Amino acid sequence: MYLDEACVRFNRIAGIKFGELFSPDDMNMIIVNKGKTGQLLELALGLHLSSSNMDFDDGELKTNKCDSRGNPKETVFITQISSIIDELIEERTFEETHLFEKISNILYVPVCKDGRPEDWMFLPSIHIDLSLRKFATLKDIWRADYYSICQQLRNHIENSPDGFIHTSNGIHIQVRSKDARDRNGNYHPIYSDVYDRYVSNKNHAFYFQKQFVYDIRKMMV
């Protein structure tokens, strides 16, 4: 499925309460599984997709918990950085990065989870394709964020007391810690070949900050 098609499907059901949209059996599944976003998307699209890897033919799906007016309640996960840390340290050209691959064509789907699960609903989704001229300003912001974050990470590694990377912010994009302990109670440190040492004691990831949501909603008015 392509993002354009997914966008149309989501927007057809935007604003319809889940209690009206899904069957009683589906609602029981949603309640039992605490409304896992991947399962909600599967039901809404009528497809069997993996909730851990929502694959589309031409881009990525990005979901977010919001209120009934579409205001974000959370940041939006993009991708982890452990495998690309040296790409960031060396400031690879933005358009050649794994980050760009992840955000160059995305469908943002807000999910309102106010009240009971029966009252939850999808809100209108936004398709962002950076190859289109109308998103040139957005692309410029994300490019500037990327280079700023690369510089911040290097500065942390070289100048912070612990020699580790720390939260780094742009206007829309940030890097911050995202990790869970393994079965032995350990986190997943990040090793840099450039510095030939560990540069973090736990994994980190790229996120869209809440400002991203406010700004793209303004663009679509």
Rank of each mutant, 00 (worst) to 15 (best):
L43S: 11
L43P: 09
A44H: 11
L45N: 08
L47V: 15
L47S: 11
H48A: 12
H48K: 15
H48G: 10
H48T: 14
L49S: 09
L49G: 08
L49A: 12
S50W: 09
S50M: 11
S51A: 14
S52D: 15
S52C: 10
S52K: 14
S52M: 14
N53G: 08
M54H: 06
D55F: 13
D58Y: 04
D58K: 07
L61V: 14
L61H: 04
K62M: 03
T63L: 04
T63P: 05
T63I: 04
N64V: 15
N64I: 14
N64P: 01
K65E: 13
K65Q: 13
C66Q: 04
D67K: 08
G70K: 00
G70D: 01
N71D: 09
N71C: 05
P72C: 04
P72G: 03
K73V: 02
E74S: 04
T75W: 03
I78S: 01
I78Y: 01
I78A: 00
T79Y: 07
T79G: 05
I81R: 07
S82R: 14
S82Y: 10
I85H: 05
D86F: 03
E87R: 03
L88N: 02
I89F: 08
E90S: 12
E90A: 08
R92T: 10
T93V: 13
T93Q: 10
E95D: 09
E96F: 01
E96Y: 04
E96P: 00
T97K: 01
H98Y: 09
F100M: 02
K102G: 00
K102S: 03
K102L: 01
K102M: 05
I103M: 03
S104I: 04
N105H: 14
L107R: 03
L107W: 03
L107F: 05
L107H: 05
Y108D: 02
Y108A: 02
Y108S: 01
V109H: 05
P110R: 07
P110N: 08
V111F: 07
C112Q: 08
C112R: 07
C112L: 06
K113G: 10
K113S: 15
K113P: 09
K113F: 08
D114L: 10
D114Q: 14
D114R: 09
D114G: 11
D114Y: 08
G115C: 11
R116K: 15
P117N: 13
E118F: 13
W120L: 10
W120I: 11
W120Q: 12
M121T: 15
